[in-house]
Design a protein around this nucleic acid. Structure first.
Length: 430
RNA sequence: UCCUCAGUAGCUCAAUGGUAGAGCACCCGGCUGUUAACCGGUAGGUUGCAGGUUCGAGUCCUGCCUGAGGAGCCA
């Protein structure tokens, strides 16, 4: 029966058996310090020459970094240990002496680490990030599940673009053309008409040649869609969802945040309600802040978003964008048809847009007009029009980008560390 | 696609146009409380590729390849 390092504190004074890997070793002539990890935590094992058999001592002498082994030892509290506990080793059983491990203890370049991503994820920092990612997913799903949402899975293979704007990954579907999904939203609208409040959680694919710290080719989105919910109510749900998620990470991932050296005060601020400014106000703000030549009607770029976010200590909603820069399905403001009922949520500290959402067009006549204005292939969108013909209702939805959210909460400078095996421009390996 | 920067030992990096080096890792030896342990030693090279200039090129020039950061686009 194995004991995990995570629960080692419950075994003080007793002998336990741990299965793990050696991530470092320091030795003197008559004492060896084995740094062990088992995926649940880290602990140091102490091996004293005159207290173990010559065979055990000799085996330990030949252990290399990342060798796998079973260790028997007596758990002891020790102030000198970073985790508070140590093991006095009584016996070891080597599973495998690892070959020379490529990832050394000193620093490495990004290219090298990305080529060894399958090994890189063993490091404490990467483990912490992946744990927080899992906690974020758990918190988001927990919040939605408890608030009346039903999980619905949209297809990954689709016959055409959902929005028609970005480049899609093309593949064959027997004799037909098919594309990897870039958003499940339109399908989620259909699901909302069946199940009321729904959300999807899955991968999306963008064949964009984007090469920045905020972009991945394959990334994960959470896309809630809500019948009978207007723009204003949707914003409330969004800010509660994000605040809940941040607080869950703060409560459940203290050790991981410490490993990442994350500034906790920046996260503790994140409570609803979030500030809101309209697109008009954002343009004004930019004019005052050194972007004098920004003209009304343009979409914001990354520098603009960062400048706007700097004015707030929590995520900010930018609402009511010009109709022309947004997608065809967004509902115009009844009082001002030149803008739409939409909002982007911009994360603080320069992490950019983490949510994009809107109220959707529910009027079949207006949607027809949009099809024509955007020259959408009618037959591919026939089913979407059906949603407005058979009992249309006001509805809203949004998409939350998981990796940007993880990058922000973890305080990372690049999204490539937020996903186990990032798919990036020109990088498909490992 | 565009702009900027970079490619030298397994890794991280040095090297005025003049004999290619250090630290770490590996291997060998030493050390009874180490915290990226430390000390000594061995070994480790087609300087991204192809041309060019030069008595001489890691260094200068041209082209290409690869990577990084950013832009556009987006979450």
């Amino acid at each position: 029966m194995l004991t995990t390092i995570k629960e080692i504190s419950a075994h003080v004074g007793k002998e336990v058996k741990v299965g793990g890997w050696l991530y470092n070793k320091r030795s003197s002539g008559k004492i060896q310090f084995l740094q062990l990890r088992d995926g649940t935590g880290f602990i140091q094992g102490i091996l004293v020459k005159k207290q173990v058999s010559p065979e055990v001592w000799e085996q330990a002498n030949h252990l290399t970094q990342e060798s796998s082994l079973y260790v028997w030892g007596v758990v002891r509290e020790d102030e000198r240990a970073p985790g508070g506990y140590e093991m006095d080793i009584t016996n070891i059983e080597v599973i495998q002496i690892a070959e020379e491990y490529p990832i050394a203890k000193k620093e490495h370049g990004v290219d090298f680490l990305m080529d060894h991503r399958h090994l890189w994820i063993r490091s404490p920092r990467q483990q912490a990030i992946l744990r927080i990612r899992a906690e974020i997913i758990r918190a988001i799903q927990g919040f939605l599940d408890e608030n009346g949402f039903t999980l619905v899975d949209p297809p990954v293979l689709t016959p055409s673009s959902c929005e028609g704007t970005t480049n899609l990954f093309h593949t064959k579907y027997f004799d037909e053309d098919a594309y990897l999904t870039q958003s499940g939203q339109l399908y989620m609208e259909a699901a909302a008409m069946a199940l009321n409040k729904v959300y999807s959680f899955g991968p999306t694919f963008r064949a964009e040649k984007s090469k920045t710290r905020r972009h991945l080719i394959e990334f994960w989105m959470i896309e809630p869609e809500m019948a009978f919910v207007d723009h204003e109510e949707s914003l409330k749900i969004q800010e509660q969802l994000v605040a809940h998620t941040v607080q869950a990470v703060l409560a459940n991932c203290k050790q991981e945040l410490k490993t990442l050296d994350r500034d906790l005060s920046a996260l503790e601020n994140i409570k609803a309600p979030f500030p809101r400014i309209t697109y008009d106000e954002a343009v004004e703000l930019l004019h005052k802040e050194g972007f004098a030549d920004f003209t009304w009607g343009d979409d914001f770029g990354a520098p603009h978003e960062t400048k706007i976010a700097e004015s707030f200590d929590r995520p900010v909603f930018i609402t009511h964008y010009p109709t022309e820069v947004k997608s065809f399905y967004m509902k115009p403001d009844p009082n001002r048809p030149e803008v739409v009922l939409c909002a982007d949520m911009i994360a603080p500290e320069g992490y950019g847009e983490i949510i994009g959402g809107s109220q959707r067009i529910d009027d079949p006549v207006l949607l027809e007009q949009r099809y024509e204005q955007h020259a959408l292939p009618r037959e591919a969108y026939e089913w979407y029009m059906d949603l407005r013909k058979y009992g249309t209702v006001p509805h809203s939805g949004f998409g939350l980008g998981l990796e940007r959210t993880v990058a922000w909460i973890c305080g990372l400078d690049h999204v490539r560390e937020t996903i186990p095996f990032p798919r990036m421009l020109y990088r498909l390996y490992p």
